[in-house]
Amino acid sequence: MYPAAADLGDEAADKAADKAADKAADQAGHAAQDAARQARFDELIEADARIEPRDWMPDAYRKTLIRQIAQHAHSEIIGMQPEGNWLTRAPSLRRKAIAMAKVQDEAGHGLYLYSAAETLGASRDELLDALHAGRQKYSSIFNYPTLTWADMGAIGWLVDGAAIMNQVPLCRCSYGPYARAMVRVCKEESFHQRQGYEILYALSHGTPAQHDMAQDAVNRWWFPSLMMFGPPDADSSHTEQSMAWKIKRHTNDELRCKFVDMCVPQAEVLGLTLPDPELRWNAEAGHYDFAELDWDEFWAVVKGDGPCNRQRLSHRVSAHERGAWVREAAAAHAAKKADRDARAGAAA
């Protein structure tokens, strides 16, 4: 391009200029490419299409999903503990078999969700480390203790009921793997809710002591269950963006209100009362009005000061550590078998 006589000084300057121009062109190229990708992403979201793992997506979308799916997965895994407490104390073999199937489902739900989070580039180990170190949260509801058998009923009816209310719209979430995991989870959750309702119905129509036990469980689980929908819309930092991305389809308050409307008639059939003196039908709104929740309690539990936060986390970490030998043995067995198969292959 240049005559051979061109001096080195100029050549170096030219090269530097060329490089700068290349870089600027590169950056402009990248910016143009990013803008095109962003436009394509926006188009898909707008059209209500699903985003799949290998599609381009904004970093913030990816981060939000990893945070939400991880928190969801952790909740399923930690959620085994309050019920695990009653596996050996179930009042009949029938109830015990059901409780075991339910706890096994919760483990399965955790696995579907961890897999979904991994499609976004998070690693299983990072996610577990973040849970164990307290960097990622799980649903605060699991930081309440299960004091009586009736709590198994209240958890199934209210906690799983609230979870279903949250999860059904997530089956239409814009991220494909999360939505598909939710379809499986929702199918399985409906048994959880019904078995809980059946436990409470049996107790409520049993002896006076059993009825009181059922009422006491509902009294303790009602408000924490309503808090499962998250802070009021005005204080929910993620809602607006998540709704724009169609990760979320309804606000926290909308879902909470729907849940209350569903529970009131169900409680009547149970013969139990909901522990809210302000609960009454508002004909104008077409919904039940209910008391303001104790958000100070909510935030205290979120921040680690619930009745069982430390116990749940330390049990989780210890279960992971105590399971290490199983993981080591399985890995050693796989390595030995692969080695043996390789040698057999070489001999043949």
Partner: peptide, 30 residues
């Protein structure tokens, strides 16, 4: 020793005779 070193597998399930295997998800295993 960790699940991380276990490779990831994609899982396909045939729901019943006459249908093809469909992708249902993934998991780690040794």
């Amino acid at each position: 020793n960790t699940a991380e070193s276990w490779p990831l597998f994609e899982v396909f399930v045939r729901a019943r005779r006459g249908l093809s295997h469909n992708h249902v998800g993934s998991l780690h295993a040794p």
